[in-house]
């Protein structure tokens, strides 16, 4: 399964090398390697690009070119919760814009950004494949459909409540 939230670990050569060796038996393994790196860290750390290039014997520029070509890869660390907002055709017609506007208000993150408190990263995606329940968003791998601005409030509040339970809120 895809790990959606950052594991907050520091990138280590040992982990990166293990991932490379796991896939490198196959030809054309750069993309699966990058995918697993991102699964592990929530993003592709710049040191990983250099390390993969050295290990797999491809120029670092080529690895970087792949990272920037494919929308899936990100070069910035993730917030604690990843929210993907569907901007597919059905969702667009059924009012994603209003839902997205509300989402950025309550999370404090516009699309493509991470909120200041590091709690939310909001991304836009092309289609989540749940078009008949438009508009849809995906929160940490789970899809929510038939959304309204009120439903967004509820979803975000629930996440905040859960997070508050896990880590005591800082005083002040």
């Amino acid at each position: 399964m895809v790990i959606e939230a950052s594991t907050r670990e520091k990138p280590s050569f040992a982990v990166i090398d293990a991932i490379v060796h796991k896939h490198n038996v196959e030809a054309g393994a750069v993309i699966p390697v990058l995918q697993e790196i991102q699964e592990t860290y929530g993003y592709v750390p710049p040191v990983a690009i250099q390390r993969i290039a050295e290990n797999m014997n491809v120029p670092a520029s080529e690895v970087f070119g792949i990272v920037t070509f494919y929308a899936q890869f990100r070069l910035q660390p993730l917030g604690k919760n990843l929210i993907k907002v569907c901007h597919g055709t059905a969702c667009h017609l059924c009012g994603t814009e209003t839902v997205a506007e509300r989402l950025s208000q309550v999370t404090g993150a516009r699309e493509g950004e991470t909120s200041q408190d590091g709690m939310f990263t909001v991304e836009r995606v092309a289609c989540l494949g749940c078009c008949s329940l438009a508009p849809c968003i995906m929160v940490n791998g789970e899809t929510y459909g038939r959304l309204t601005p009120e439903a967004i409030d509820k979803i975000v509040n629930e996440i905040r409540k859960k997070e508050a339970k896990e880590i005591p809120a800082p005083v002040g």
Binding site: G88, T89, C91, A126, C127, C130, C131, S132
Partner: peptide
Amino acid sequence: DEGDPGAF
């Protein structure tokens, strides 16, 4: 790859 953003 189902790229059409509105198809499933």
